[in-house]
Amino acid sequence: MADPTESGYLDRVRREFTTQTWVLIPMGVALSVVAAYVVNVVKVPFLYLDALGVVLIAILVGPWTAALTGVFVNLVEGFIVNPTFWAYTPLQVAFGLAAGYMARRGWFRRYWKVVVVGLVLAIISIVMGAPITVLAFGGVTGTGSDAVTAFFRATGSNIWSAVVGQTLVVEPIDKVVTALLAALIAERIPARYRPETAAKVLDRDR
């Protein structure tokens, strides 16, 4: 006999995936890609927002859908922007799972809590991203962040500390702003277009 708790869990995962969910995933993916373009216009330093789509899907649907969105964000960005993004796929998956589980536990109901979600994403990014950057790319990213890495190298750090130092500077800003924007935007979604799974996540305790 199957373990009842396990089948209940799988059931919950399965319930996340309706036709609407399958349509939402490409939306989340495209939003992440296009958010980067919008940021480019507004020009905020060290802001990339490439996790925005995943965090939004985490809020609107759930962790597993968000994780799957994460897989496709980097797969697709690799296809249309830059193949090196493929290497960072595990990060996006982890963002989706973390944001999704925190959303279900009410971490998007207060703004200070959203900041904490952003910091958690930043920690994931540092812990998982820095090794990928050092091992797969020799410590470079091909973005403006490399200037920060170079600064740390100039102060005498080895490559590992320099890349960790760089992510410590860049990631908290990007991820906290990403989480806050996701919360602000998701809250503005009119009731009739809000997927049912989102209501519980956003409604404030009254």
């Binding site: 939306m27 939003l31 919008v38 507004v42 905020v44 702003v177 924007l181 935007i185 277009y193 997927p195």
Partner: peptide, 21 residues
């Protein structure tokens, strides 16, 4: 600039959700 991002990304998301339906 971050508030400007809200004014730009909100209609983008809502429009995306309308088309999703």
């Amino acid at each position: 600039r971050i508030l400007a991002l809200v004014a730009l990304l909100t209609p983008l998301l809502i429009g995306a959700l309308i088309s999703t339906r």
